[in-house]
Design a protein around this nucleic acid. Structure first.
Lengths: 190, 190
DNA sequence: ATAGAGTCGGAACGTGCGCCCCGTTTGTCT
DNA sequence: AGACAAACGGGGCGCACGTTCCGACTCTAT
């Protein structure tokens, strides 16, 4: 796939700087941050960014890839838990919490709300693992039946919208998430 | 306020055409529709639009004003209902349903989710009336306590996000709204 | 009919962005 | 050290959009 031709030393250093700056910039301002600002933060020219990444979107995906991968692993680590309902809810809350600290993650997850992104690659991993957690929680009777992974994506994008607006209105974090989780719970169980 | 100086006949006709075209264009594509397309739909030049409305945003507000006013009236008509819980839920569902048919309404209501818009004017009317419905439903025990009008704005923007994504994924309308309403209900009551 | 104020249309301007080009610089290999 | 390819950077292109400008064109009052 990726030809690991040995890069020149300065090229490798600049590539790392770009990735670092892009991670910070995307995290702060999301996909809407101008590419020129990423270049400025990295201390390089815009041309250098494009030498290493074909498009701005490719850079974004390179930046978000690791975090999504880690989230997918976290989800897998929670499978086969003693209390599947808690595991599912913990993971959902964790995803939302992290997205509130990282606008790039927020944008990536909200993009998963529309079917334009077919959830390929790492995105697919997250949703596969999340789907497993959901199934276990449903089988345990903790989460109502009739919810599938597409609903999860839709619900998550809604939750992110709400939490973002709640924060803008100086409301405590997690309240909207709690309300949503209440709606997903099979009434009367944990 | 508005000086009702008698406009020239062609000016009045063009103003009406612009409003009509803007209503259709904003409804179809939301605030993001280019002003040039509104002018094109109206069969006038961009300069003519700006003669009648100082900015694109002013045109948008002129267009959305009537619909918001009508929604506020609908809300007031539902106050003092025999079943306040049903009245509240019916109104919330109606707002969401109409917003799904009108992207301009959607944009206007989602903008109310952030505190940047202080809900002045007609927006204020809607939220005042909605707040009354909420209070009655809560006093009747149909909606859980601890929810206020700010929460409503946040919840509505989240619900609109979810319904939009649900539609994009060919999911039946209203399901996400139902889930949200479930969360708002005091468990065990209608 | 005619003057002149009001109106029109759309070319043009300013801005911001993603992306590309190319003269210049820098690392690396002999 | 010298030569060559690789990499740099930032000016510039193309595009989209909101907004403004101004010469041409009506409508209306006399």
């Amino acid at each position: 796939m990726t030809s690991d031709k040995p890069l020149r030393a300065d090229a490798r250093r600049n590539r790392a700087r770009v990735l670092e700056a892009a991670e910070a910039a995307f995290s702060d301002e999301g996909m809407m941050v101008p590419l020129d600002e990423i270049a400025r933060r990295a201390g390089v020219g815009a041309g250098t960014v494009y030498r290493h990444f074909p498009t701005k979107e490719a850079l974004f995906e390179a930046v978000i890839h690791d975090r999504l991968r880690q989230l997918a692993e976290d989800a897998r680590a929670l499978t086969d838990a003693e209390r599947p309902g808690e595991a599912f809810q913990r993971f959902l809350a964790q995803v939302i919490e992290q997205a509130m600290l990282n606008k790039a993650l927020c944008d990536a997850l909200e993009a998963a709300g529309s079917p334009a992104k077919p959830a390929d690659g790492v995105q697919g991993d997250i949703w596969d693992a999340f789907s497993v957690l959901l199934g276990e929680a449903q089988r345990a009777g903790a989460i109502r039946a009739g919810i599938d992974v597409v609903d999860l994506r839709v619900l998550l994008s809604g939750a992110l919208t709400m939490e973002r607006h709640a924060r803008d209105a100086d409301r405590p974090a997690g309240r909207m998430t709690e309300i949503l989780l209440d709606a997903l719970r099979e009434h009367g169980k944990s």
